[in-house]
């Protein structure tokens, strides 16, 4: 498959899948999101779900209401329109997510599943540091929280974001998954597998390395907090997130705010322009953080 030619394939009689690229890149992800947004703008009846993912697009439809050939025509049209646009930009938002790195909850869970891990004598952070030629866990944490992350996909389970680090590929943190998946992961664990960080929205099985935990909900079926007033899921594809390291005291304080129902996400709207980011990621990220922190 060439870099520019997408692969179209039927997923049974209810899905069309477009593989934009086999490799992950921000460009491929952006194309998936732009296609999704073009399809959604004037959504044909019978198209039930438009799901952009890291480097592909899944469209679910009801063939009793729309012919599959018509779905394919619309998706190809969306792809063509995206290819023609000169400026790849996205109206989105940037927000902060506090993380207690190297916390006892994920460390304890990791310790229970050492027989499934590459390095039974190290914890996940120490292993991740080693894999990325960093001197220690501390250096890895600094690299992880040092740059913003781009939400390239939401899914797996309800509201779980896949996050792609907004740095040039040679600087991206990459860590293999566990050798065999765990049967348990604490809710709100910050995990990492391959080049993606994920936040476990619910407790459950998982194979990503565990680096820390956030006190802030990202999935709230009871919709208690203000940020969940309209919908039970916080993350949307295209969201930009900045992790901020907190210690146990601050974790506990934020958790109390969440439990009291008064926690509000620190966030700001932002227009993300792909070309400007790619031209100078570090300078662009610094501007994004100015938007978030209002300096």
């Amino acid at each position: 498959m060439s870099a520019h030619e997408s692969r179209y394939s039927w997923g049974g009689d209810e899905h069309l899948v477009v593989q934009i690229s086999e490799a992950m890149s921000l460009e491929a992800n952006f194309k998936a999101m732009a296609m999704a947004s073009a399809l959604d703008q004037d959504r044909a009846s019978g198209i039930t779900d438009i799901c952009p993912s890291n480097a592909s697009l899944l469209v679910r439809f009801d063939p009793d209401l729309i012919a599959p050939t018509e779905v394919e025509r619309l998706v190809r049209e969306a792809e063509a329109s995206v290819g023609l646009s000169t400026k790849q930009e996205l109206e989105t938002r940037i927000f902060e997510l506090p993380v207690w790195y190297d916390d006892p909850y994920t460390n304890e869970t990791g310790a229970r599943f050492r027989d499934r891990h590459q390095t039974p004598d190290k914890n996940d952070l120490e292993f991740a540091a080693m894999e990325n030629d960093l001197p220690d866990a501390e250096a890895f944490i600094r690299a992880h929280e040092g740059s913003p992350w781009f939400t390239s996909m939401v899914g797996f389970v309800a509201g779980l974001p896949f996050l792609f680090q907004m740095v040039p590929q040679e600087r991206q943190l990459e860590v293999p998954k566990y050798l065999r998946p765990r049967t348990d992961t604490p809710k709100l664990t910050i995990g990492h597998g391959g080049c993606f960080t994920a936040i476990y929205s619910v407790r459950g099985a998982g194979g990503y390395q565990m680096f820390g935990i956030t006190p802030v909900p990202i999935f709230d079926p009871e919709q208690k907090l203000l940020d969940f007033k309209d919908f039970m899921i916080f993350f949307k594809p295209g969201d930009i997130v900045k992790f901020r390291r907190v210690d146990e005291a601050e974790y506990t304080r934020i958790l109390a705010e969440v439990e009291a129902g008064v926690y509000v996400y620190k966030q700001a709207p932002v227009t993300f322009v792909l070309e400007e980011f790619l031209a100078d990621p570090d300078a662009y990220n610094a501007r994004l953080l100015e938007v978030l922190y209002g300096n």
Binding site: G11, G12, V17, Q19, E22, N54, G194, C195
Partner: peptide, 21 residues
């Protein structure tokens, strides 16, 4: 394996799964 996909040959860059796939 392409960048972003896991190391096992059955791995792909994480993507949407059709229902019934």
């Amino acid at each position: 394996q392409p960048f972003g996909a896991g190391s096992d040959p059955s791995n792909i860059t994480d993507a949407g799964y059709p229902v019934g796939s």
